[in-house]
Design a protein around this nucleic acid. Structure first.
Lengths: 228, 228
DNA sequence: ACCTGAACACCGTTCAAGT
DNA sequence: ACCTGAACACCGTTCAAGT
């Protein structure tokens, strides 16, 4: 992880190192001090290349979002709005799976970098060019919400927790029978209790298609804003 | 904000003070040291009542979720699954609006307190008692995701940002015309550009109903898991 | 122009001590 | 049983100085 301390520091090297550090050791490891150590430099040296930690985080977001285009499934403009939107979101999801910290950073950021705006603009263009009205496009973007970044927005950070010991499963199953049933908890013949994990990709596409189905229906029905 | 330092500390006083502090000054203000000062006590005194900061945060979640029941719109079991689910989620949303820090805490927490599980169990019960199959209920809960807590899951933390100066609006409108159009940016007769904020409650209910419509349709059609 | 060193005002938490 | 004091290993960042 140590880098050669020969070459001059620059903004890109700082951002790339921050992304690599977050990928490898998690977002909490990305401190100005730790990052400086990683680059073989004193903490204050970083401040010549990023104004402060906020700007570092913004820069990391841009690095990650810059990878989305390469994931796009080719020209889909002629294939209809639905494939275009779906393809772009699933491309973002692939990027996000490579950079798990992206979600937490993007969600706490308030600054909207040009990269963030460009991505959003492209998605919105997908709806508008298919004849969606501006109000409908507006609401539909809100309904998709942070799912446009490929985020799972699940109830819990880690749906596929390491299975707890059988005893606590029994406890869960008696105290919260509905959760147990729906979590896919199965009682085997020998009395042992297990839960199978979720297929995250399936759940994501299920939810995305549920939304896109509803959106298509509203558009086809000529949805109009409520009178008031 | 200073509290009488007469009465003995206990877990509830610590948690209530933490919630009050987060409500008033934001989550970032809730440090063990600051909280101790608020309670007129030395930082280490808190550790007799919560094991560490994680347990403090879990406790804060429980305090907030404990307020949901009081927000429920009365018995709705007979009114059908849709009103029950919708009512519970909108009740959670009202609680969340009083405690804006809840979202960030709940999303970063990995421990699932009994309160969190009880809330989830009640929602799931709403679907199952209406005859939803366990697999469909499972996917449907994932699709709702963190929206079950009344979270908006918007693209950005603060959709209704303070309007930037007109000059940057012009810039935005030329660089990202689709965003500008859909954001409700309007060019007035005198050439000035303004954007109206969103109605958060409308957007939330629009998205929730879009999902519930889709869910109802799948259930009515007798949705079955894909063969494999 | 770029990097360094020392310092400031913060964190969460451990450990040994007080009452 | 409950609270305290001093300490440790961390933060982000400012300021003045080095090359």
């Amino acid at each position: 992880m140590g880098e050669s301390r020969r070459e001059r520091l620059n903004r890109d090297r700082v951002l790339d190192a921050a992304v690599a550090l977050a990928d490898a050791d998690g977002l909490d490891s990305v401190s100005m001090r730790r990052l400086a150590t990683e680059l073989g430099v004193v903490p204050m040296a970083l401040y010549k290349h990023v104004a402060d930690k906020d700007e570092l985080l913004d820069g990391m977001v841009d690095v990650a979002l810059g990878e989305v285009d390469a994931e796009l499934p080719g020209p889909v403009d002629a294939a209809g709005w639905r494939l275009a939107v779906r393809g772009r979101i699933l491309a973002a999801r692939r990027v996000q799976l490579r950079h798990p910290w992206l979600r937490r950073v993007l969600e706490t950021r308030t600054t909207r970098t040009p990269m963030v705006l460009a991505y959003t603009d492209a998605l919105i263009a997908g709806f508008r060019s298919a004849g969606f009205s501006d109000p409908l496009t507006h609401h539909v973007m809100h309904a998709l919400g942070s799912r446009i970044w490929g985020f799972t927005q699940d109830l819990f950070e880690d749906v596929n927790q390491p299975p707890p010991d059988p005893a606590s499963f029994e406890l869960l199953a008696t105290a919260f029978p509905h959760i147990a049933a729906v979590a896919g908890v199965a009682v085997h013949d020998d009395g042992t209790v297990v839960a199978r994990g979720c297929d995250d990709q399936f759940e994501f596409e299920f939810a995305l298609d549920l939304l896109l189905d509803g959106i298509a229906r509203l558009h086809d029905q000529g949805w109009l804003p409520p009178a008031r």
